[in-house]
Design a binder for these strands. Structure first.
Lengths: 210, 210, 210, 210
DNA sequence: AATGAATGAGGTTTCATTCAT
DNA sequence: TATGAATGAAACCTCATTCAT
């Protein structure tokens, strides 16, 4: 079996990360044992250490991969949407389209990782980098919309970006353990309503002068 | 004599919970050992088990206590504020007034607990109860505002309530590990702006000073 | 059982060290598991960690204790012997009197520790300290003999001291695995002969003038 | 073709043993992994198992080879030295000429092997054989000296031989971790002095220059 | 009620050895 | 013959919990 291709190894690494995600999101970082991951994948405990240095290494690489995948996916899709408004709409639609269970799974992992990294100097720096990528992606859209005249000129793009993510995470957080998909969708819809009402040029208040 | 004893016991329980909060928020649930708590409090490991059944028991009682304390505190304060708008304003002000470090500490505990409880049937039910109290508190305010004509009639009070908490938690989450107090304040301010713009009947900013 | 006396704890520590010595000398450092020591002593694995920080800690404390015990024992006995010659004679007699199996056991431990410490910065410093005590003890005797006129004036006391220990260890090393007690005794005897012939005033060479 | 193959195989075996010596002496038997050896040599882990059955096998073969090499080397050199005294002098000179670091490295390996073998029946027998070769080599020299009248007739050649090796090993042991080359040389010198003073018929120092 | 020594299950990681390629 | 991924036993150490004092 040895002398395998680089592609094989990459595939193996990915498979381990995928299996680890299942375990971490299901049982938490502390609650997941290397044995859990190994058994879940049907491989030996030792083989995991051929590809990763430690449990924490798996955790970190997993987050890295997810963030890159997510940002790249959005960036690619954004190219198919002309205006900033359409791009934001696309994002909202993605939230709506995603099965709630998937969202929960991923969110548990994300949240726990965020807390975990906030207690670890080394992870902190890397996590900041990850976050910058995601924030930067939206920041660009907001700026694009302000330049194109879609959004109000006097907005602070950075603040709006922060709000955008904050609300998404907050909503997901509140749906972490209960709530139906229908409730979730209505909340996303309302948030979209609230956001556009706040940033849009054309969402001019009805009869108000401010 | 029994009365004194009971008071003493309650005091002891509270002290342990307080010490446990320091530890849990600082090092996380898994990262905190019973020894950590005992040493932090200057008591013996054994004495902790006189007052609580297990580590998880401490964790759960602590959250219970915090939730009750917070909701009761808000409810009491609300009585001093006439309108729904003033009540919401009071809440925003509380967020602003709270030192960022305190917020971070507490949020880490809350978030971790939320995730933790989402993986445990028993904790789930109790956590739902806790959340209902907090949500209910805001729900009342929103309804009050809608009835008084302060807020738009066509709002879905439940959705607005969910959004209110979701944004608060989302913002706190994003400030978990970095960001200055100034940035935080600006974000809270912007959120307030966005929220009122969304729910208010005629949101006439008073000289734009808020 | 808790709230035990300091004496109890010291006794426990000593018992663990004694049990560890049996294991380390019998199976070597690497070959000895914490479980071996625990089982040998009839205590739980965990309790060992109540008294020592790690396997290496046990190893180091054990050597420390043995060295101190040995040096103190010799120093005390030396007081009963007037001349330097008598003191050296006493040492030789100790080697003769000691059961060969005991010597082997202890030597295995000592030798392995010496090698082990030569590969570890931290242990090195401490081991040097231990060695200085043992060397210093003999150095005093040699100097005493030179001052009293028992030994030759032109000797380098430090060199003689080194030789003294080196030969003892060398002999013990060669008897590590085989050889009878009788052979061992004859070798010790011959060494004594050789040493005194070298250092003694009265061992004046027969007819030689140097 | 088979001849070439056999030579190649022998060369490979030797290379592995050489690399293993570097690792074993540097990190100890337990501290050396098969990977260490493989990486040090730039070969694969698997290839090592083509030439040796196990880690212990390498260890044993290595000692075997070293012992044979050493004894053969001395025996060859001895032919160039006429008298027993000259032969012993040659050995002393070898100790002096050898860089201290080399000596340390090799001694660590030898000592650890000695201890290791003392705990293993099979290795014991083989080690005894090795030792007999080395002891026998010196034994011959001592006997030669006694027959030629260089050394005292009443000596027990076996005992002197044992002492000879014991002192050498003892000195090396004491220089295992510290001490300068200068100190080492003086000790070797003093040992030589002591030994000749003990075994020589008429040990007339030539102007006291050695 | 308070103490803290004792317990032992369970976790992470290492590494000699095997074997498919 | 060479490779190195895979295996899994086994090691060290932690820590929630118990219980004798």
């Amino acid at each position: 079996m040895p002398k395998v291709t680089e592609a094989y190894k990459q595939q193996k690494r990915d498979a381990i990360l995928e299996g680890a995600l299942d375990c971490f999101s299901g049982k938490g970082y502390a609650g997941t044992t290397i044995d859990d991951i190994a058994i879940h994948l049907g491989v030996s405990k030792g083989s995991i250490y051929t590809y990763f240095q430690s449990k924490e290494d798996i955790y970190i690489r997993l987050m890295e991969k997810r963030m890159n995948t997510m940002v790249n996916s959005f960036k690619t899709k954004f190219q198919a949407h002309e205006s900033a408004t359409e791009k934001l709409n696309y994002m909202f639609q993605r939230f709506i389209d995603q099965p709630l269970e998937d969202l929960r799974r991923l969110l548990k992992f994300h949240l726990e990782f965020t807390i975990h990294s906030s207690r670890n100097e080394d992870m902190q720096a890397q996590m900041d980098g990850n976050n910058q990528k995601a924030l930067g992606m939206i920041l660009e859209v907001i700026r694009e919309g302000m330049e194109s005249g879609e959004f109000r000129q006097e907005l602070d793009a950075g603040i709006v970006t922060s709000l955008f993510w904050a609300v998404r995470d907050g909503i997901a957080l509140h749906f972490l353990s209960d709530g139906t998909k229908d409730q979730f969708n209505r909340l996303i819809h309302e948030w979209k309503e609230m956001l556009f009402r706040y940033i849009n040029m054309s969402y001019a208040p009805r009869g108000n002068t401010w």
